[in-house]
Design a binder for these strands. Structure first.
Lengths: 207, 207
DNA sequence: CCTTTAGGCGTACGGCATACGCTTACGATG
DNA sequence: CATCGTAAGCGTATGCCGTACGCCTAAAGG
């Protein structure tokens, strides 16, 4: 009976994401999204309660593209976890501006749960008991969250690291920084993950 | 010759920190800090270029309390790293509102460098070569950053986890969540760190 | 005592989220 | 086809925010 909606939540999320990808997180405002759609600012409030709900819409839209299918069970379990982690990193990494938003809304998102389910299953198969599983799962999440942020904020082989390499008062750190340029972003991420997996008990043997 | 300054940067940082600790990060505004000091809003701009510089002041003030002294060399190196990590977590954890600010300003902060120096030294002593050191150091930082945020956003034994425990469509995850209540925040943090250290090669032997 | 310099304040602007009330398009019903 | 209830969409207004700019004044050197 009433007038039909002229916008789907998905169109709204797409518009907001376009704004973010173009102008960064700071460019995201109700006005900007309304303009992107070609609607008045207040018209948006017919679709979302407030700005937070719009953000949630964007995050869900992006995170929903993470494939939650358990990987082929023929592989060793640490490889399967790597695959799951890499899927998450791939999706988040293609929208780096979203990272702070995802962090802030993490607890409300169903995707993290859907992602965690197969990971928990793999850890159980690997023989970890309940308590070990709790700790391993949280550690993996902590590592992924932290690594993605560090990666986004300053590439390892970038200018910031170069500055450190020249600091005479920090001999060990600068010596370490000089080795940074031949570690790619991917090697760094997977290297760290491999350390964690080895600690959990599933990685290749100790050096 | 000119009129002397009536405020030290430290007083400014202290006032801003008081506002944050009382009203949260959202409560931090130039107006609020000015009122806290008993000065007009624009008076603050005699001391800082802009809001960002005020934030930097607060972060430096807090992070400067992290003890950068290398721990007693008699201990095994993985214990020494644990001590360094715990110092960082202790300081940041007592001002949880600051976490997003610290993340955003991370690259400008000298404290992280001062902290990283002894950690790099310990890793070198442990026998890691340059490349391994780069990866281990970044991993530790990633874990700490991620874990502190996860810890702050949702306690493991809290209501959020309880909800998960009742989700029938996520059998492995909910089974895992049911074990969460007997893992304290500290156990979780140190358990994850122990996994990472074991992977690096310095933790207690594999299970 | 006078001059100079920076300290401190008030005002004003443009941007933000959003509360509220009006107008209007729609489509089900008579 | 005419009518009307409902929700869509818009305009206005409020109260935040950071901060540019110009004025007045305190204080120290000569």
């Amino acid at each position: 009976m009433p007038r039909p909606r002229s916008l789907t939540p998905d169109q709204l999320a797409t518009a907001a994401l376009a704004v973010i990808d173009r102008d960064g997180l700071a460019g995201l405002s109700m006005r900007a999204v309304a303009q992107e759609i070609g609607m008045s600012t207040m018209g948006l409030y017919r679709y979302v309660e407030d700005r937070g709900e719009l953000e949630q819409l964007v995050i869900d839209r992006v995170l929903d593209t993470v494939d939650p299918m358990p990987p082929d069970r023929g592989r060793p379990w640490h490889e399967r976890i790597e695959i799951m982690v890499e899927r998450l990193r791939g999706v988040v990494g293609s929208h780096p501006w979203l990272v702070p938003l995802i962090i802030a809304h993490r607890h409300r998102s169903a995707t993290i749960l859907r992602w965690s389910e197969p990971v928990a299953a793999i850890l159980a198969e690997a023989g970890l008991d309940g308590r070990e599983r709790v700790i391993a799962l949280r550690s993996l999440l902590a590592y992924v969250v932290g690594a993605i942020q560090l990666e986004q904020l300053g590439p390892l082989a970038g200018a910031g690291t170069q500055v450190i390499a020249d600091r005479a008062e920090l001999p060990y750190l600068s010596e370490t920084a000089r080795h940074a340029h031949d570690v790619t972003t991917d090697e760094e991420f997977h290297g760290g993950l491999a350390l964690l997996l080895r600690g959990i008990g599933g990685g290749p043997a100790i050096r």
